[in-house]
Design a protein around this nucleic acid. Structure first.
Lengths: 296, 296
DNA sequence: ATAATTGATAATTATGAGGTATCAAATAGA
DNA sequence: TCTATTTGATACCTCATAATTATCAATTAT
């Protein structure tokens, strides 16, 4: 117990816990393998806890090691956030907020929200990143973003959800398509058309919902293309590669030879939700959620 | 920026922030004042943030310094808690223990054991699962449970066994059966009765032992039903579907129209054993086995 | 059998934390 | 005004120890 534990020990520990390989971890840390071994040993001695099982040619985390990896990781993320925030404070900025969003949220909602937030909190630095649903959850858990905008039903525990905008779906057709708002009866009129849809990887639950729409209409769609980007969908529709179904709000802001038919009769709706990690201690996050609360 | 920040820097920072006096802080930290000054300077340079205003003969925290003091303080508290918890986990004082057991062990033994263990280790979370002998071995090998309670002679290598309770068998008869404790002579009196027994799949070696009892008595039983549950056996016996033989301890805790005759004369005994995987490193397991050691 | 992999150990080096001495600036007291 | 005192910063030095190199021991792959 004569050595003080330092960050170094935990930095090294995390690297070994990550790679489960002393030599590789040493390379990543730009130190030699024996040096790394010694520091890990020191940490283990100081804590009085065995962190790794070294057998044969395999390194394994012990139960306690596993626990420490998780906890130290989030603790370090928090510390990092504290330091970043301190730097921003120093620059006269009151904090920052890292947003992730699916493309379809940028349509109208995020600009509106940010404008409102900037009004009350002018010195907040906002970072925006377009990421898909699944990766947003990942980023939230790792505290790489503070808040996400997703279209997905289920989220892991530890993630808070607040629905903020529910909307209908709309059919997307080429402008010259024979079906229009007046002669449109039901989706089954499109059973022989090719469909261009958001990829299942975009969000499983979103995809399921779309499939349910087809189920309810009594046919399986021919899916000719899938993408993760509204604008590519529209390009394809415009050029007669097929038709599509998208959240209604996505119809604004494009000037293409396509038309939309809102599907108000079907029961399915899609909900844009904001999500955040309840372990996140960023003070700006609290304020942002406060703003959201007064939306509906 | 060529120095890495270490805990030291924050420890020193907190001491100065607390005392607002470099010399006093240095005394508290058992280092010299110039050494302290230098570390604080390093921290400030590394963060790119001024933490203290040194004017006249007074030291004052800057806004950012104030923020950091609060945040680092709570962050360090959290880290401390993490480390303490890790130590508890390591000592098996906190954590969880997953038990598997055959129904007949729940009769008296497991409640007693758990009560005793809970007394010395109140913070351990215990998961209980009723599983048959064979599946317990499987679960131990896969480390899906930490400890098992079985009635089975042979176990694979890698599994440790400790017998904890040896007992006689008892006949189970309907209350109105003509044989009772006084006119009972030997098992051969039942050669024409139907028997209801634990299924062979429950445990092969247990089944073999029962068969041996019949062998010794010179007859093969007529087996009319087999089940894996003491309570169903008793229901069947109560309704005159046949008679049975069970471990004696199973007679407690039922209120049915049945009676028991303990077979003390025959040599066969059944032994409840605890079993665990010797590769299992769950520290709680060690402590549990320790408790067991003082049982007999 | 030989070579490759991988973590631990031993001996050595060199970085930088901490020590001593001292300074500079400011203040208090005469 | 002239000390004496307080207090953080600087300069220089020492030594503890982190990191390196070289090597080993054990295992596994060829």
């Amino acid at each position: 117990m004569r050595y003080q534990i330092e960050f170094r020990h935990f930095r090294y520990f995390l690297a070994v816990a990550e790679t489960l390989h002393f030599r590789k971890a040493a390379d990543i840390l730009f130190i030699s393998q024996p040096g790394l071994s010694r520091q890990i040993k020191q940490l283990e001695e100081n804590l009085g806890v065995k962190l790794f099982e070294r057998h044969n040619r395999k390194v394994k985390l012990t139960q306690v090691g596993l626990y420490l990896q998780r906890e130290i990781n989030t603790n370090f993320k928090q510390l990092e956030a504290i330091i970043n925030h301190a730097k921003l404070l120093n620059d006269g900025i009151d904090g920052n907020l890292r947003l992730g969003y699916v493309g379809s949220a940028m349509q109208q909602l995020i600009p509106d929200l940010l404008l409102k937030f900037k009004g009350t909190h002018p010195n907040i630095l906002i970072n925006l990143k377009e990421i898909d649903n699944k990766q947003q959850i990942e980023a939230l858990l790792n505290q790489n973003i503070d808040i996400g905008f997703i279209r997905q039903e289920r989220v892991p525990i530890g993630i808070n959800v607040k629905p903020i905008y529910e909307e209908t779906f709309s059919l997307v057709l080429p402008k010259n398509h024979k079906i229009n708002k007046t002669n449109f009866k039901s989706l089954s009129q499109f059973k022989n058309e090719h469909f261009i849809l958001f990829d299942a990887s975009y969000s499983e639950s979103y995809y399921e919902k779309i499939m349910q729409i087809f189920d309810d209409s009594g046919f399986s769609p021919i899916i000719s293309h899938s993408t993760i980007n509204a604008s590519s969908i529209y390009r394809l529709v415009e050029n007669n590669f097929g038709v599509s179904i998208v959240p209604t709000s996505l119809k604004y802001g494009f000037d293409l030879k396509i038309k939309f038919i809102e599907l108000v009769e079907i029961p399915q709706r899609t909900t844009l939700k904001i999500v955040w990690n309840n372990k996140n201690t960023n003070p700006v996050l609290k304020n942002f959620i406060e703003i959201i609360r007064f939306l509906n």
